[in-house]
């Protein structure tokens, strides 16, 4: 019912489900050990940014295009190439089809 054989191993989701349930239980226990007596509406609920002032919400949120900045900058060469490939020109879409057709014909027919 649960196990699949892959030829060189097996996979059983039940083990993982048990592991996940145990992890969540642990998290819950640890969380309930925390202090509950903090004072609302005081400084205590403010975020602490090593003493820096807190900017307005919109500036604090990291934008999607800034995430993975290091990854994309390091692979700049690849990305400029790929951006050049994706021209958005319908003729190029047809051209790619013809190219792949030619490659397949060459390999298959030789």
């Amino acid at each position: 019912m649960f196990t699949i054989e892959t030829g060189s191993g097996f996979w059983n989701p039940i083990i993982w489900v048990i592991a996940i349930v145990v992890t969540f239980l642990l998290i819950y226990i640890l969380r309930s050990l925390g202090k509950k007596e903090y004072k609302k509406d005081t400084e205590q609920i403010k975020s602490f940014l090593s003493g820096n002032p807190e900017y307005p919400k919109e500036k604090m949120h990291i934008k999607a295009s800034n995430l993975y900045w290091g990854f994309t900058t390091n692979l700049k060469g690849l990305y400029t190439l790929l951006r050049k490939m994706h021209t958005g020109n319908t003729s190029d879409y047809v051209l790619w089809f013809v190219i792949i057709l030619a490659i397949f014909l060459l390999v298959e027919v030789i």
Binding site: G88, Y93, W96, F97, I99, I100, F104, L105, E108, V109
Partner: peptide, 22 residues
């Protein structure tokens, strides 16, 4: 052979395989 290639490539394009995925 030609028919096979035409069928595979044309249908793979409709399935969206790189580099005919754009």
């Amino acid at each position: 052979k030609i028919a096979l290639v035409l069928l595979i490539v044309a249908l793979a394009m409709k399935a969206g395989i790189v580099p005919m995925h754009m």
